[in-house]
Design a protein around this nucleic acid. Structure first.
Lengths: 188, 188
DNA sequence: CCGTCTTTATTGGTCAGACCAATTAACTAT
DNA sequence: ATAGTTAATTGGTCTGACCAATAAAGACGG
């Protein structure tokens, strides 16, 4: 009846706790698999199941002969994978777009941009080699950095990765130019 | 130099292909671990590493004695996981509060609440046994459900959980009553 | 003393097999 | 035909072994 808790799940929790309480930072090395198996009183195979799972998530990185390292965000592999399983056009996609837009609209309302940041924006829009998706990404990346909230940035990036793997309706170019114009006015 | 491809990653690809090409539908049963290990020419432990990884993503579901089943993905299991790692990496309380408030303000702008939902809100505010934190949670839960975006709800809940472990400045009672009054007016 | 080469130890990657636990399928007796 | 029992299937976990890649330690020649 009750949910059986598998060892590898527990190990994941332990590692999570370990990262949290011992204050692991991106780049730090985790204990070896053998050491973890002793430390957590689980077979190495179970530890590995846990590590492989969160490696797929992109939380850690493991290199043979070296060890396992806590990893900072970059593109999560899992996202691409998941996107292939998720049915396109489902409600998930709509919810995702809504959530993503919510964050984007939020950072757009940043007080003011520096001249340098405005320059970045213009440069991005002028770059013909960039795909629509990449333009969108880089464009808003400037705003997210201006907004200076790492958490929102990370969440947005996650959503961005997801939505890149699904078909999304692109904005017309005018959309970006309007934003840019608005912020130019704010400065003068 | 070149990226070593681990067996468990290959197995994941194989399973992915299997699901795609053989037209597996949610609920269908996958081959057993032992069968897969023969079929894909990999040790059972490697197959398990792959299965555990995509199980964590929420793509499949495994029950002891029964088997492994392809699952209808709709629970945002992976998002939850990823978010939990992101959140715990971001130690900055202020960012968390800002992000949480962003979501809350968003759902507050829902078009209209039903009479029943308004009733729920009033009941929550009138309940003296609830702590400040619980009141806040339940109060906004009504709005999140009215807004009908499972993803936002999930993210908010995660933030809620994380911020509960930190001291958060509580809102005065008037805050909630003002919201309630506003939505009452909208109805009439 | 320094840098280089060799050897050793550590660490992940993979495999094989064993045994337990839960479920399912098959069988048997009533 | 049904209920109860037994056997087979399937996942869960553990142990130990061996390979591969890297890192650490030691030996050697300059």
């Amino acid at each position: 009846m009750s949910e059986r808790i598998k060892v590898y799940q527990q190990v994941i929790s332990e590692i999570q706790r370990l990262i949290k309480e011992d204050g692991y930072l991106p780049g730090d090395k985790l204990p070896s698999e053998r050491q973890l198996s002793v430390q957590l009183d689980a077979a190495r195979s179970s530890v590995r199941e846990a590590l492989r799972a969160i490696e797929l998530l992109g939380v850690i990185e493991t290199r043979q002969g070296e060890g396992t390292y806590f990893r900072d965000y970059q593109t999560y592999h899992a996202v691409e994978l998941l996107a292939s399983f998720i049915l396109q056009g489902s409600q998930i996609q709509e919810e995702l777009q809504q959530a993503k837009k919510l964050l984007e609209n939020h950072v757009l309302s940043v007080d003011s941009l520096s001249d340098q940041q405005l320059g970045q924006l213009m440069k991005i829009l002028d770059e013909p080699s960039l795909s629509k998706g990449e333009k969108h990404h880089r464009f808003f990346l400037v705003f997210f950095k201006a907004n200076d909230n790492q958490l929102l940035l990370k969440i947005w990036r996650l959503m961005q990765d997801f939505s890149e793997n699904m078909e999304q309706k692109a904005y017309p170019d005018q959309y970006y130019f309007d934003i840019l114009k608005k912020h130019k006015n704010t400065i003068e």
